[in-house]
Amino acid sequence: MEPFRVHQGLVAPLDRAHVDTDQIIPKQFLKRIERTGFGQFCFFDWRYLDDNLTPNPAFVLNEPRYKGASILLARENFGCGSSREHAPWALSEYGFRVIIAPSYADIFYNNCFKNGMLPITLAHETVDDLFRRVHAKEGHRFTVDLTTNTIEVDDDHTLSFEVDDYRRKSLLEGLDEIGITLQSEEKISAFEAEYAG
């Protein structure tokens, strides 16, 4: 996995609560057998009009000012619903490396870390404030630094965030979790030898 250390990028605000993984990547695109090719279908049903071709001008990510965004500002319970890892695959391939929201669904949150993407949790009021700032200033970019757990929002405004130590280390080093678990081979074998279940 590609390590994540520092990322600077344009911020796009998706001002909706409970964005579920069916919105992030609709089911009709889950038939691929690869990990790639999902970015083009990210937010498909919101992104395109009913002809499935014309970009929907009312959808925020289609606004020219957010073209090339790599930090997604979102609302509570982001990524709820299905466990499909296709959701972080799609977001990542679309260009997002960081998500900032007040809360996430568990499975989605976990899946992000497996794909080199950093979901940051901040208080509701802080997220509200970020929405205001991003709406107010076109071309607003943040610098997210996982080595210091900080987000530079503006020259004079830096926020800190918390993330579980293990997950942080996994991202910083781009760890291969399976490889690490397989180093515990003896412990797993010993467990299996004793195990009655």
Binding site: E85, K114, E177, L182
Partner: peptide, 16 residues
Amino acid sequence: FGIGTSEVEHVLATQC
């Protein structure tokens, strides 16, 4: 509980 595809692979490989 439900898991993502990376974890599916993890369990296939390690049963953990």
